[in-house]
Design a protein around this nucleic acid. Structure first.
Lengths: 219, 219
DNA sequence: AGTTTTTCTATTGTCAACAATTATTTGAAT
DNA sequence: ATTCAAATAATTGTTGACAATAGAAAAACT
């Protein structure tokens, strides 16, 4: 076993799950790939049981599907999957954002503002990957304040799946700057703390991102 | 290993998870109990790895929480948990029921009708456990037709948790018959296939069941 | 040649044993 | 008696090996 394991206090399986997740984000692992336990065990210098643990975690996040005695495969996301994910995302966020209004304090807004400035920078550089991560962070930051741990967890899982879908797209429809501006607008609406307005805005926002960014990008 | 394992085509871990789930429903295992892998392994005459697999499944369903190196414990549901669960349940069902309207056919309604007649019988006998299982089945049947697999899965998990919460209550507030009647009403509204009406009814229904059945039952 | 059956191989399912960690008990010192 | 420290026991984390299964390759049959 590797010696760093002593430094890291989390179970080994989680660390490996995290690694694999990153690999999927970065397309080192492609959708549809079969993951062979023995190979991964060798690669990470760890026993198969530990790999199995990691795969179970990814399976729970729906990033991977293992069929008994057939092996485990990286989920291949289709447009139908995106439809499903978007629907779930919509009903969760439209609730969570409104509820978050009652819990969010100044420091939370500051965090959002920081994310926005980073977003602006990355928009100028033009790094979609970073932009998506910031997007994820922005939304998660708000949802985290909704006061319902279970809702937060569910959202996390959905968001990761969308992130993977995005990571494996080849082209995007919108410009960097309009992507930033969308979030800036969303932020401004949040500042007003008007429930009705927020509900409408977040719904429009999700629709916007889906339509202008993710749809119709045959490369 | 046990010989039946050849008859059963599912992984052993899943079978054991199912067993444990039932044990929690039937209060053979109490909330807060610690589950010791070695003991379970002996009880089911199976290796610890298999038990670990089962526990991972239950953990994913949030019925059990395992802290690294501290052991795994059956989740102890509080009223706050019920609040959270009810909120998630509400936003999912109010969406799923409306969407199900477009997909439900006659045979689906027949299934519901059958559940209702069974419910009526059990209401006369007075078996809360059976009634709750039928309740679960009723709602799940509709949600299953919403056309979004992910929503269905999420709902399943939430529903199981609520089921456990209910199983560990000592007294209920409402009469058997009004419980049956509530579902009968819900069924009638579904028959009308009016989206707005259904949305309102399912929200009221959930509120009703929570308030009249689950709240304020200090025994 | 094409099809079915058999053999072989790669891979997952399961197990029992060992290592690391946490909890409990014992024993000393004050 | 109480508190702290060391030794002990109980339990989880991890491993490597064996068994069962599915898929591929080879062989036999027509």
């Amino acid at each position: 076993m590797n010696d760093d394991s002593i430094l890291l206090r989390r179970p080994l399986g989680e660390l490996i799950a995290e690694q694999l997740r990153q690999d999927i984000y970065n397309r080192r692992i492609e959708l549809g790939d079969r993951l062979i336990e023995a190979d991964l065990a060798e690669r990470f210098d760890v026993s198969r049981s530990t790999i199995r643990e990691a795969l179970k975690i990814l399976e729970q996040e729906k990033l991977v599907l293992s069929k008994a005695r057939k092996g485990t495969f990286v989920c291949r996301f289709t447009e139908e999957d995106l439809d499903e994910l978007t629907e779930v995302r919509l009903i969760i966020e439209s609730r969570a954002f409104v509820k978050a209004l009652t819990h969010m304090e100044d420091k939370d807004f500051n965090v959002l503002a920081d994310i926005l400035t980073e977003m602006k920078q990355e928009a100028e550089i033009g790094d979609w990957n970073k932009l998506f991560d910031l997007d994820m962070l922005f939304h998660q930051t708000v949802v985290n304040r909704c006061g319902n741990v279970r809702l937060v967890k569910i959202y996390e899982s959905i968001r990761v799946q969308i992130r993977v879908y995005i990571a494996h797209l080849d082209r995007y429809y919108t410009s960097f700057n309009s992507f930033y501006k969308e979030h800036k607008d969303l932020y401004n609406v949040l500042l007003k703390r008007d429930a009705g307005l927020v509900k409408k805005k977040i719904e429009d926002h999700i629709e916007y991102v889906e339509e202008k960014l993710l749809r119709n990008n045959k490369s």
